[in-house]
Design a protein around this nucleic acid. Structure first.
Lengths: 188, 188
DNA sequence: GTCTATAGCTTGATAGAC
DNA sequence: GTCTATCAAGCTATAGAC
C-alpha cells in the first residue's frame, strides 16, 4: 500500500516549529525529518530548493496566517481600541502566551541569505505599518503613531526574548495588556 | 621561530563576535578559526572542552565586562538619574549604537545545553536586579521598580531585535534615551 | 602554543525503487 | 508521494610534529 501524503498544513506547522525553535542553522534536515515524519528525500520532493525553500515557505505561510488572523482585525470595522484588544488576544494565542519564540527573531540570527533577510524585513514592516495605521485612526499624530507602533513591536519582541531567556512569561502578558493604551492614548 | 600566542583579550573578542552574530549552532569551528586566526587544534588547546567551553568562556567574559562597565555605575555614588544616564551611554557603546545583537539573545535560540541556558538566565537576572535596585533608590515602589526594570530590559532587547531584522537602529537609541525617565519617574 | 594531518560523524542533497 | 541507499562536503574533535 502506498504511503499516505502528509497533510500540508500539518507539515508547515511542524516545519515552522523547528525553524522557530532552532533558527536556520539549527534546523537540520534530521530535526526537520523527525519533526515532520518525512524522510529527507520526501522533503526534497516537496521543496526542491532544499532548506532555503523550506525556510521561505515557512515565512510565507506564517505571513499569510499572521496577516489574515492578527493584522486583519486591526484594519476592520469597530472602534480602534476594540480592534487592538482583539489583536492582543490573538497575539497571546499566536505566541503561546509567551512560551514561543518569534519566527522572525529566530530566523534573523546569522542569516546570510538575502531573500530570507528581505522577507523578514518586509514582514516586520507590514506589521509596523498596520500598527501605525490603527494608532492614527485612534487619533494620534503621525509622529506619535509611528513611535508608539515601534514601541509596541519592540515590547512584544523584547518580552519574547526575555521569556525565552528566563522562562518568565508574565512580562509578555503585561506588555500585551498595555498595548491598547499604548496605541490609543496620546500621553503615557 | 615559534608562533606567538594570540592575545587572550583579542581572542575572546573575536570569539564573542562569532557567537553573537551566528548563535551557537551557526558558530562553526571554521568560522571561529577564521575569525580568531587560530587553527582548530589551537582552539582545542585553549578550550579542551571544545565549542561548549568556548561558549561558556564567552558568556563569562561578557558577564565580567558587563558587570564592571555597565552595572557597576548603577550601584556607585551620585544621583540615580545621573548613574542611569551613564549606563545608557555605555550601553549604546556596548551594542554598537544598536548595530550589534545581544549575546544572550543569540545564544538562547535553540540552546539545549543546560549549563549555557542557566548561565544566560543568571546573567539576565543579575541585569534585572541591578535595574530594580537603582529604580528603588530613585524612589519607586517595589512593585513599580520591578515592572519598570523589566520594561527597560524588554525595551533594549526588543529594539535590538528590531534593529537586526530591519536595519533601523533609531528606535534603539530612543529607548536608551528614555531609560532614565522610565526608571526614575513614578508615572509615565 | 601553534601547526598539519586525520578520524568519524553529521550535514545538505540526489538517484532510483516502489 | 514516500522510501532506502548513497554521495561529497562540512562538522567536532584528536594525535603528534615543531
Amino acid at each position: 500500500m502506498p504511503a499516505k501524503k502528509i497533510d500540508e498544513d500539518y507539515l508547515m506547522d511542524r516545519l515552522t516549529d523547528v525553524f522557530r525553535l532552532h533558527g536556520y542553522e539549527g534546523a537540520s534536515l534530521s530535526r526537520i525529518s523527525q519533526a515532520t515524519g518525512l524522510k529527507r528525500a520526501s522533503l526534497y520532493h516537496r521543496f526542491p530548493g532544499g532548506k532555503e525553500e523550506m525556510a521561505e515557505a515557512v515565512l510565507k505561510s506564517a505571513d499569510e496566517w499572521f496577516t489574515s488572523h492578527i493584522l486583519a482585525p486591526l484594519t476592520g470595522s469597530g472602534k480602534p481600541l476594540a480592534r487592538i484588544q482583539k489583536m492582543t488576544k490573538r497575539l497571546s494565542n499566536f505566541y503561546g502566551a509567551g512560551r514561543h519564540s518569534c519566527l522572525l527573531d529566530s530566523l534573523s540570527i546569522g542569516e546570510e541569505d538575502v531573500a530570507i533577510r528581505q522577507h523578514i524585513e518586509e514582514s516586520f514592516s507590514a506589521w509596523l505599518e498596520a500598527l501605525v495605521r490603527v494608532a492614527l485612526e485612534a487619533g494620534l499624530t503621525p509622529v506619535m503613531a509611528k513611535e508608539r507602533a515601534e514601541e509596541a513591536l519592540i515590547g512584544i519582541q523584547g518580552a519574547l526574548v526575555m521569556a525565552r531567556a528566563t522562562g518568565n512569561t508574565k512580562p509578555f502578558l503585561r506588555i500585551l495588556k498595555n498595548l491598547p493604551k499604548l496605541l490609543t492614548l496620546d500621553s503615557k
